[in-house]
Structures are given as C-alpha cells and as structure tokens.
Design a protein around this nucleic acid. Structure first.
Lengths: 210, 210
DNA sequence: AATTGTGAACCTCTTCACAGCT
DNA sequence: AGCTGTGAAGAGGTTCACAATT
C-alpha cells in the first residue's frame, strides 16, 4: 500500500470523532462537505483522505455515518486492543491514568513504571508500580505494545532505549526532547510547551502590528 | 513580514530547548549540522528556518548558543510574560497546574474556572476557582491572554465563544473537538487520543505486513 | 439534482548546492 | 577549511474541476 501522510492519519482521527458524535445524534448520512465544515477543512480534502483506503460513499447521497465510522476504525486499528505501558508516574502520568477517554477505545494501560523507590511497589488503583529496571519481564508478561513516556527529559532517551530492546514498537512521548529510535519504531510527541510557545509567537506578532 | 509556517515555529521551539540544554552543558558554539542531528532533521532546514528572521550565525564558525537562544526566545515572545486562564479543573486541568515546566518560562496561570458548583469558590494552591460565568470580569482584571481549554468536548465551543468575547486571543485546546474561532484568534490543539490513534494505525499496518 | 472519487494543477515546505564570509 | 545564508530544484500535500454514479 502507498505511503499515507501523517496529516491524513490525524484527519482520519478527527473524522472518526465527528462520525461518532453524529451517530450519537442519530444522524445516519452525511456529505464530505458537512464533515469538512465541522472540522474547518475542504470537502476535497475529506474525499481525498478517504480515497487512499477505498470508496466508502454513495454518489449523490454521501456516506453512512455508521459504516464510515467503522471503516475508519478499522483503518486506524481501533478494532484491536492495545496494551499500554505508562512510564513515569508523576503529575502527567497520574492524569493520564484517570483520563477516561482512552478507556472507551481499545487502549488499556497494563503496567506502570517509575524509578522512584519510594513509590515502586505501591499501587495506584488496580496497578502496582514496577521499577523501570523490570521493564523487560513485565513487558513480555503483559505483551506491552505502546509506551507512554512521562518521565523528565533527561531520562527519556534511556528509558526508550530499554523499551525498544524489550520489543515495544510505539511511543507517545511527553518529554520535551527529541528521542531517537531505530527504523520501524513509531514516535508521536505531545508537548504542551511547544504549543504554548506557538501561541506566544502569534500573540507577540499581533502586538507588534497592533 | 512574510508568513511563517507552523512547522517552522514548532522547530524553533525545539531549537530553543536544544540550545538551553547546550548552554547548561557549557557548550557555547554549535553548527546547524549539530542542531539538526540532535533533532533528526537536516542542517539546511535549521538554517532556512532561522533565515526567515535574520542572520544569527558566523560563517565558518556556527552559532553562539547563548545568543541564538536569546534570539529565538525573542522571536517566540518568550521574553514577555503571558497570563493564562485554565478553564476546567478536572484531571487534566490539575495536572497542568502542577506542570513545572511552564512556570520556568513566561507562562503564568492567573485564574482557574469551572462550572462545577461543588468546587467553585474553593482554592487549589493559591488560586480560587471562579465560575465560568465570571470569565469576563476576571479576564479583564487579570488581563488574561491565553486560555487552556480542559473541559469536556461538548462544553468546549461555548466556553471558547465567551472567552473570545471577553478578549482572549489564543487557545490551547485539550478538548477532542474542532473549535471555531473568528479570524485573528489562534488555536492549538493537544489531543492525546489522536496521537494514540496514529500509533495504533502504524502498529496495525506493521502487523498486517509481519 | 446531488455528491463522490480522482487526475491534474497548484501551492507549500524541504532539500540541494554553492557563493560568500570568517 | 569550515560553515552560513539562500535561490533554485524537488518532493509532498492540498485544492480544483469534472466525469461518473445514485
């Protein structure tokens, strides 16, 4: 299959959410135009994104919200269950743990890790906190596939290196550092400071003009 | 000034962090090549990004880490102080409140808002939680410039609408919905579900191949 | 009549490659 | 000799516009 761009994949996520909402509202068909309007993009973009994966609509009619939602779910692998490691049980880590939204989808936090001896061995909810050194044994036992990295920047690379060695192939990185991984391993970054700085840039620019 | 692309702005953020780290390590000059290597990009990209704003390097020598860091700081408006509203004091909201990193830069949370009557009026640390309905008076008093939206998706648009009306011009949106704003207002999205879904997509793809 | 699916055109961003400076 | 700064070339992503279909 042809290489699909990152922007296309994130738009599919937004379409998925839009369609879920429409199904909840008992709206059963929709045009690419409406999906586009809801998400501030063009209808051509919506159709092009979908066209990489197949023909899901009916000309003259639009798309079935339920069917398209399911199709995109399959494309994104949301029909599967994913076992997640949460590495770093500080503020961010704990917030993620409580984050209701991903429980509703196929993402299951299966193991917590930290290197702080005062909390290793204790429990949060149902989960015991393991020491980071035990990552390989736990990783194999729980079949961990995705790791959420919520440790300080200076420990992030080392932690990722050992997780890669233990077979984890996907990372959601909250540490504000560029982490390096071998080819074939996927990393997505979530970095609030960067987004705030982008806002700061735009506000400064406006101030100068004003 | 020419329109600068979003990718350029976020890369400037990463350069800024890279340079801060180098200064901490007492490394006082660096080439575009090294900055690029640290962040998995090309040196031409680094130089091009900087060239939109000026000439900060010395041919044959590279850049002064301290000077370049300061220049990028000015470009991003990090030499200013920004007053932030945190709207929605649930799990995410509370985690952000404790998030040390943005205290070190010019971002100051000045006011908390929620619509849950059981917590409005109570305090978290130094901050009293205001009702969302009081957004305009507080906004003017505290001169709020950026709002972090950490409310459920279905309340997000309404909250943003009133904040826009009260003069807030920049939003960091954690709600998983596309929010609409008038021209001139900036929105950045922070959406963990989307990033996880992108990881899920890549893992599924690999599974099919493997 | 309405709306999809898609090649072609367009635009934007990235990389190349080298002149110019230190 | 080494590295920046940048115009030109190349790659990649978005939008146009229309034939095909319901």
């Amino acid at each position: 299959m042809q290489k699909i761009s990152d922007p296309t994949i994130s738009r599919l996520s937004t379409y998925y959410r839009t369609l879920s909402r429409l199904v909840d509202q008992e709206i059963y068909t929709i045009s690419s135009e409406k999906i586009a309007d809801i998400n501030n993009i063009t209808s051509a973009q919506v159709r092009k994104d979908l066209s990489f994966f197949g023909s899901f609509g009916k000309r003259g009619l639009g798309y079935s919200t339920e069917k398209l939602r399911a199709e995109i779910g399959t494309i994104l692998g949301l029909d599967k269950k994913w076992n997640i490691a949460l590495v770093g049980v500080g503020n961010i880590g704990r917030a993620l743990l409580d984050y209701a939204e991903f429980k509703t989808q196929g993402f299951f936090i299966k193991a917590l890790f930290d290197n702080d001896k005062t909390i290793v061995g204790t429990k949060i909810g149902d989960y015991r906190i393991h020491h980071i050194d035990d990552v390989c044994s736990v990783s194999k036992k729980e079949n961990l596939e995705i790791a959420v990295i919520a440790v300080p920047a200076k420990s992030a690379q080392a932690v990722v290196d050992s997780l890669v060695e233990c077979g984890v192939q996907a990372f959601l990185n909250f540490a504000s550092i560029t982490i390096k991984v071998p080819a074939g391993i996927v990393v997505k970054n979530e970095n609030m400071s960067m987004e705030l700085e982008a806002l700061s840039y735009h506000l400064s620019k406006n101030k100068k003009r004003g």
